[in-house]
Amino acid sequence: MNRLRGTPITGRAVVVWLAALVLTLSTASVARAQSPDAAAAWAAANDLYEEGSFAQAAQAYRQLASQGYRDAAIFYNLGNAYYKQGETGLAVLNYLRAQRLAPRDADVENNLRMARERTVDVTAEGDGSGPAGVLSAYWPTVDELSVGVLILWNLTALSLAAWLLIRARPGRRAALYAAAAAGVLLLLAAASLGGRLFLDDSADDAVVVADKVEVRSGPGDGYVTEFELHAGAEARLIEERGSWARVALPNGDLQGWAPAAAVERVSLPRLRD
């Protein structure tokens, strides 16, 4: 900072800047509020699970999720509770939700694989082994990418400001290189964030949660049953019309209408800030 002689930015200003950045990151990434009661409810749900009361445990986990506690571990535990009850479809659904929140969690990946092994239907890429599944599973989350973009933007701006303010030629050159490097990374991170946002917004992944569902040629019982799906089958949700949902298998070859209650979307409705 000694080289910033005669500039409006001093060492103290940079410290303030970094402090503001850390404060922003910490406050932006955390909850509106922290609740010890919710943690206690979670512990109680775990106790129910340990006792073998899987149905009650699942209800408790569900309640936490509906209150806005979107923690990957809650959906993971909920998937476990369903798995233990033999509810393969709901187990797959909640493991997928957990995976969206924690894409690289090995436990989630393992249990999802085991739940998928219980499913009846073989659908192309429906087991998450396809490119889209792998991308979705290992791509950083929106929050991770957002933080990355913020940090890289600060680095880029800081480097550019230094380049503007520093008079010494070597310092100016170093600042320019730093700005270029951070700028390239910023572009990559921003592109990834945009892609992730697009993927999440257009995500229409769904899971069959009923034991068996007849997929018909139209939204009604009078239409021809074109094929059947079983619990845990992963499909795309194309359209919802009344109590019917139009689904398609991942490869797109088969599609039709199923009762909306029999399939559930993987993505969760957003909460208000």
Partner: peptide, 24 residues
């Protein structure tokens, strides 16, 4: 399957993504 995960000391309500917050 692998066992359930323990509960934390306190739980945070996570709402909209960071990128949709004004502070961000």
């Amino acid at each position: 399957i692998r066992h359930i995960k323990p509960s934390p000391d306190s739980l945070r309500v996570t709402g909209v993504p960071i990128v949709e917050r004004g502070l961000y």
